[in-house]
Design a protein around this nucleic acid. Sequence first.
DNA 1: CTATCTGCAAAGTCTTTGCACTTTT
DNA 2: AAAAGTGCAAAGACTTTGCAGATAG
Lengths: 130, 130
Amino acid sequence: MSTKRSTWQKVAVRQALEESNGFASAQEIFQMIISTGLKLGLTTVYRALTELVESGDVDALASEDGETKYRFCSNDHHHHLICRQCGETVEFDLAGFEAATSELAAKHGFTSVTHSIELFGICEKCGVAS
Amino acid sequence: MSTKRSTWQKVAVRQALEESNGFASAQEIFQMIISTGLKLGLTTVYRALTELVESGDVDALASEDGETKYRFCSNDHHHHLICRQCGETVEFDLAGFEAATSELAAKHGFTSVTHSIELFGICEKCGVAS
DNA sequence: CTATCTGCAAAGTCTTTGCACTTTT
DNA sequence: AAAAGTGCAAAGACTTTGCAGATAG
């Protein structure tokens, strides 16, 4: 059976994701790590992220530019408001929304429902700059 | 200046997107069209979709599997509940949610905010089958 | 020691671009 | 006829896979 091993590469990936405020693409994480002088393959980053996703610690999300973004999954389910320009992220919680979606899904006979809610906009700083 | 011309290819793309209930990827649209016997290039589909997006009629959204999904931007903004297994889609409207998101965005100083809300689950038929 | 992991290079997707040809206007 | 559009093939970006060598336990 598969007993996962701990390697410095996996640790580095996890740390990089933490430092990025828990929201980064594989490519970004790769750059972060090698820019510190450490050397590892891009392949390893993808594999480490896949492992984190499978373990449930991390969540994968497709972004608008074709990259997959990764972030930590907190237990208290929250969503993000993301600046399209600078990437600044605000977490938020939507009271009542979780319940509304579950109800809606049930009404249509759907089960095992997950939801993806992300808001994209221009934050205050970037709005002024333009 | 660029005056857009009307071609049967663009019409076909628009129609295919309409027939797919306004939620499909470029690849899917391409398949839909050629399966009717018409012949056109994948390139053209991408270009037609890009034009629709630029004109504001259509909205592009990154999906979890790396493809970009396209859908019509209706004024009465609605969302989708999609079966992970068979792809069946139910449209829904979330009273109050639109207002809640706008308010939230404003509170954080964000402007030009768009949102992406999709629910993924297993529909009744597929749930029984498994 | 040995199952697992790493990393290179090659392959696979989806999407975009260059360029000659066709079509709308 | 001329500007715009089409389609092929090649290129690009992100991600996955195969395999030999390295490593954790």
